[in-house]
Amino acid sequence: MAETEETEQSREEALRRLLADAVEVQLAALKAGISFWTEWIEQTSVFVQSATKSLSTFNAEDQETKDVLLELVDAGRASIRAMTEIPRNTATRFIEELDRIEEQKAEAAKKAAKKRPRKKSAKKAASAKRKAKKRGTAKRPRRATRVKD
């Protein structure tokens, strides 16, 4: 009889601990959620303030529109970084964007090249390049030190 009571008590204790743990987890999740949204609202507000300030200077004569745009772009990116804290995702999107611009530029260059009269045939150009390489006069791209020591 005493043994049954003891078992029941320990079961109750286990249940109590389980419930306490669950509440703790729920509270932590809630706290994290609140903190996320608070930060999100703060960051959005900072960006909106910065954007409003920059946009309001568009009409002012003393500042170049392009300059203001650059500031706005920077503020936008800062906002994205601060909000998400996942710079690699931002970087990926940013690189994709650059890729798209580069593709457009390459397409435009291709079209422009088609319109221009060709100075030298590809065959001749390749042969000149080979000759220059043989003579050791071919231009090699230089590159400055990038890795920080």
Partner: peptide, 14 residues
């Protein structure tokens, strides 16, 4: 012609 945020991304990865 990129900005400070882009520098931050490059320096952060490098």
């Amino acid at each position: 012609p990129l900005g400070i945020e882009d520098w931050r991304m490059i320096a952060g990865e490098d």
